[in-house]
């Protein structure tokens, strides 16, 4: 008979997120003067891409680090490490219990100039990271309705002064000048809605697959060029929406559609909203 040897476990952090954007990290470990939790933005190279949070004892052999909502983190994926001083190597952290209930239906103050989102999540290799978004202003996608080859989006604006002449733009990815515009209704309470017909997105192109990114823009802006607001969905606890938010795949019909084509909206790896069109050969 064979016995499993014991091993030294990597540090494990339980996280609690609050609705304002703060995160508390609790780690089992012994107190030491140099103990810190380090967040490093993946692909980052500047000093602003590293945040060091002191790990302080909370009793019962546990250490706590707090990321306050007031500390700004750039948009991206931040990997979490611990270290016990300048000389000791940094260790990746395993995700423990992630209590994210405060993030589920977040409704930040619509008058704030920016929206900050931080979601602790397990990476595919089983380590703890924090997904961050920082948007000023922000256009949050809500429900999507479908009828007669068109989709209607309901959403909410945060920190933006778009007027009644605003437009929604579908910008063809990889082709900067290919833009399709529709009018947007912006209500005084900050909610907005627009209907996007699929037919113009299918028109006149032979590609098998086209991805259209959705933006909100001021009406007077040059199509595709203005500093628009990318529409996304980030005000909840779902850090990766692609597989969870699935919408009907509908046929695109109309006199300008020459070959069988389907369309559906989807969330990108950054939780931004796009529309995908597929044409059969």
């Amino acid at each position: 008979m064979n016995t499993t040897p014991t091993r030294t476990e990597p540090p494990r952090a339980d996280c609690i997120a609050d609705s304002a954007g703060g995160i508390t990290f609790d780690i089992v470990g012994e107190a030491s003067p140099g103990a810190v939790l380090v967040l490093r933005r993946r692909g980052g190279t500047t000093a602003a891409d590293v945040v060091r949070l002191p790990l302080t004892p909370t009793g019962e052999g546990r250490l706590r680090a707090v990321l306050p909502s007031t500390v700004e983190l750039a948009e991206g994926r931040w990997d979490a490490f611990t270290t016990h001083g300048d000389d000791s190597a940094e260790q990746r952290i395993e995700p423990g219990i992630r209590d994210l209930r405060s993030l589920v239906d977040r409704a930040p103050d619509p008058h704030r100039t920016q929206v900050a989102v931080r979601i602790p999540y397990p990476t595919v290799d089983g380590r703890l990271a924090v997904r961050c978004w920082l948007r000023a202003p922000h256009a949050e996608a809500g429900t999507i309705g479908f009828s007669h080859g068109a989709m209607t989006l309901e959403g909410r604006l945060y920190g933006a002064g778009l007027d009644s002449g605003a437009v929604a733009e579908a910008r063809l990815r990889g082709a900067r000048k290919d833009v399709h515009r529709v009018p947007v209704t912006v209500r005084p309470d900050g909610t907005f809605t627009f209907t996007l017909d699929y037919e113009p997105l299918a028109e006149g192109r032979g590609d098998e697959q086209r991805l259209w990114d959705l933006w909100l823009c001021p009406a007077e802006a040059e199509p595709g060029q203005a500093a628009g607001i990318r529409i996304g969905r980030i005000l909840d606890d779902v850090w990766d929406k692609k597989g969870v938010f699935r919408y009907p795949v509908l046929p695109v019909e109309g006199s300008r559609v020459t070959r069988p084509t389907t369309a559906y909206p989807y969330f990108t790896v950054d939780n931004d909203l796009s529309v995908r069109l597929d044409t059969l050969r």
């Binding site: 999507i144 969870v244 938010f245």
Partner: peptide, 9 residues
């Protein structure tokens, strides 16, 4: 029900 029912994995 795509706005109301979610398969979370």
């Amino acid at each position: 029900l795509h706005n109301h029912v979610f398969l979370m994995g």
